[in-house]
């Protein structure tokens, strides 16, 4: 009898399997009737919760880069602010899943704010009427406190951020991430894929040492099947405020983002120059769209967000039936079609 049980146990197809309760070894197993019911093949309950919370969010965009310090947080804040200021009737939210080094509270000028708990979940911090933010920075007592957590604990908080924040009705949810291709990214990808993620925007700087890591991030997106909306190259040239000559601080000796976008068939959305005033706005938490509206970096970013390609992209990618054709260059397809 015992031997029989062990035998069954070893050959058990598992409850996730299509054959659960149906293969020969299931005969005589006390759980056969339970396993053979299709209702037991439920998805991971956490994923269901995230899906429930985010199902009404139209566009879910994740900002990624394999490399740190390339401007993910700056670009996240600028894209969000641009969308929010141009569409007053649309609600935009930023979720900062960089657990060990959250930058959004500073960049959006919300240092020291607190999140409140209500019956419907955590209330995010509102930067504008239609722009809200959630970050682990709001949960720390002291800004110097370090979050010394291994992966599983980080995954737990990301799950909570995705399933328990009361965003209200949202049109755009934009995720800011830490560098790398590890726990935070895998968790976000797993949870959001079920909730129909629109796509990823990848940020890089021009030098090869950054591109090496960013290529890995593109490989990651392909592995976990997140569509790539496009690539933004940050800090590509520097214009001296005195003599107005331009200099390459991080020289694109291997062709920069342009070459990489051609090699890997990823759309290059645009290149932003390095502007010390933009860096200062981020440090001081000021709205760069108002403070330095004529900065070339701001103007180019606005063009990217307003461009038909970008709008078309996020629209196309948000239509989930197109998901399966992840590797197709939509823009080319579209241009050829018309």
């Amino acid at each position: 009898m015992l031997q029989n049980f062990i035998f069954n146990y070893i050959d058990c197809p598992g409850i996730q399997s299509k054959n659960a309760g149906k293969v020969s070894t299931c005969a005589g197993c006390p759980n056969q009737s339970v396993c053979s019911l299709s209702s037991t093949k439920l998805a991971n309950p956490e994923i269901v919760l995230v899906h429930k919370r985010l199902s009404l969010v139209k566009y879910k965009i994740i900002i990624l880069s394999g490399k740190g310090g390339v401007g993910k947080s700056t670009i996240t804040s600028l894209i969000s602010r641009t969308i929010a200021s141009e569409n007053e009737n649309k609600n935009v939210a930023i979720l900062d899943i960089d657990i060990c080094g959250p930058s959004q509270p500073r960049v959006l000028g919300a240092l020291g704010e607190q999140v409140h708990q209500s019956a419907s979940g955590w209330s995010p911090v509102y930067i504008e009427d239609n722009l809200s933010l959630m970050s682990i920075g709001f949960l720390l007592n002291n800004s110097s406190d370090a979050i010394i957590w291994r992966g599983p604990k980080k995954n737990g908080i990301i799950k909570q951020f995705l399933s328990e924040v009361d965003w209200g009705s949202l049109d755009y949810l934009i995720l800011d991430t830490p560098p790398g291709t590890s726990d935070e990214h895998m968790s976000a990808a797993t949870y959001l894929k079920e909730a129909d993620i629109t796509g990823a925007i990848i940020v890089t700087t021009p030098q090869e040492v950054a591109l090496i890591d960013v290529r890995k991030e593109i490989d990651f997106c392909k592995k976990v099947n997140i569509p790539i909306l496009g690539l933004i190259e940050n800090m590509n040239i520097f214009i001296c405020p005195k003599c107005k000559n331009s200099a390459e601080i991080f020289p694109a000796l291997t062709g920069g983002a342009k070459q990489m976008s051609e090699d890997l068939n990823v759309e290059l959305l645009g290149c932003l120059p390095l502007d010390p005033l933009l860096a200062r706005c981020c440090d001081e938490g000021k709205n760069a769209l108002i403070e330095i509206p004529n900065s070339p970096a701001i103007l180019i970013l606005k063009t990217i967000v307003q461009s038909n390609n970008f709008q078309l992209y996020i629209f196309l990618f948000s239509v989930s039936s197109l998901y399966k054709f992840n590797n197709i260059n939509y823009l080319k397809l579209y241009q050829e079609y018309f």
């Binding site: 930058s103 370090a146 981020c282």
Partner: peptide, 21 residues
Amino acid sequence: TTPQAVSVDDVLKEITFCRKT
């Protein structure tokens, strides 16, 4: 670190880490 506040914020956390460990 780099000089800007956005970087100093995170480096401060790293120093706390060193102290704690």
